[in-house]
Amino acid sequence: MGPFDSEEEFDTWCLARVKSPMTAAVLKKLLPRMLGKTPSKFVLTHGDLAARNIMVKDGNITGIVDWEYSGFFPEYMEYALATVIHDCHEDWWLPVLKEVLEPCGFQRSKFTAVIKDRGW
Rank of each mutant, 00 (worst) to 15 (best):
Ile115Thr: 05
Pro95Gly: 09
Asp11Ala: 09
Val18Ser: 00
Pro32Tyr: 03
Leu101Ile: 08
Ala80Lys: 03
Phe111Tyr: 06
Ala25Thr: 11
Lys19Ser: 13
Lys28Val: 05
Ala25Leu: 11
Ala80Thr: 04
Pro21Val: 04
Ser40Lys: 05
Phe106Ile: 05
Met55Ile: 00
Cys104Ile: 01
Asn53Thr: 04
Pro3Ile: 07
Lys57Tyr: 13
Pro3Val: 06
Glu90Phe: 02
Glu68Ser: 11
Thr12Ile: 03
Ala50Gln: 04
Val100Asn: 11
Asp66Val: 01
Ala24Gln: 12
Val56Ile: 14
Val100His: 08
Val26Cys: 02
Arg33Thr: 05
Phe106Ser: 04
Trp92Ala: 13
Ala82Arg: 00
Gly63Leu: 02
Tyr79Thr: 03
Leu97Tyr: 09
Leu101His: 06
Ala50Gly: 15
Ala24Glu: 13
Thr83Asn: 14
Lys37Arg: 13
Lys110Ala: 08
Ala82Ser: 15
Leu15Pro: 01
Val65Ile: 15
Arg52Val: 08
Leu44Gln: 10
Gly63Tyr: 03
Leu97Lys: 00
His86Pro: 08
Lys57Gln: 15
His89Pro: 12
His46Arg: 04
Asp117Tyr: 04
Glu78Val: 03
Leu30Ile: 01
Trp67Asp: 01
Tyr79Val: 08
Tyr79Asn: 06
Phe106Leu: 15
Val84Phe: 11
Met1Ile: 09
Pro74Glu: 04
Lys57Gly: 05
Pro3Tyr: 12
Gly119Leu: 13
Phe72Arg: 07
Ile54Cys: 02
Glu102Thr: 07
Thr23Ala: 07
Gly59His: 00
Lys19Gln: 14
Val18Asn: 09
Trp13Thr: 03
Ser40Tyr: 07
Ala24Ser: 15
Trp93Phe: 11
Pro32Gln: 03
Trp67Leu: 08
Val96Ser: 08
His46Trp: 13
Trp92Met: 13
Val114Ser: 03
Gly47Glu: 02
Met1Pro: 08
Tyr79Trp: 14
Pro32Glu: 02
Pro21His: 03
Thr62Lys: 04
Val26Gln: 02
Asp58Ile: 00
Ser70Ala: 10
Ala113Trp: 04
Ala24Cys: 10
Asp58Leu: 06
Leu44Tyr: 10
Glu78His: 12
Ile85Glu: 09
Val114Leu: 10
Asn53Cys: 05
Lys41Val: 07
Trp120His: 05
Gly36Tyr: 04
Leu101Ala: 01
Pro103Cys: 00
Pro74Trp: 07
Arg33Tyr: 15
Glu75Ala: 06
Pro21Ser: 12
Ala50Ser: 15
Asp58Asn: 13
Asp48Thr: 00
Thr38Gly: 06
Val114Glu: 11
Thr112Trp: 07
Met1Leu: 15
Lys19Ala: 09
Leu44Met: 11
Asp58Gln: 14
Asp5Trp: 08
Leu15Asp: 05
Gly59Leu: 11
Phe42Pro: 01
Leu15Cys: 13
Ile54Ala: 02
Asp58Lys: 10
Pro103Asp: 04
Ser70Phe: 09
Lys98Trp: 12
Val56Arg: 05
Asn60Glu: 10
Glu90Asn: 09
Tyr76Glu: 06
Met1Asp: 13
Trp93Pro: 03
Leu94Gly: 07
Leu27Gly: 09
Cys88His: 14
Leu49Glu: 10
Ile115His: 13
Lys116Pro: 08
Asp48Pro: 00
Arg52Lys: 12
Gly36Asp: 10
Glu7Asp: 11
Lys19Gly: 11
Glu75Lys: 13
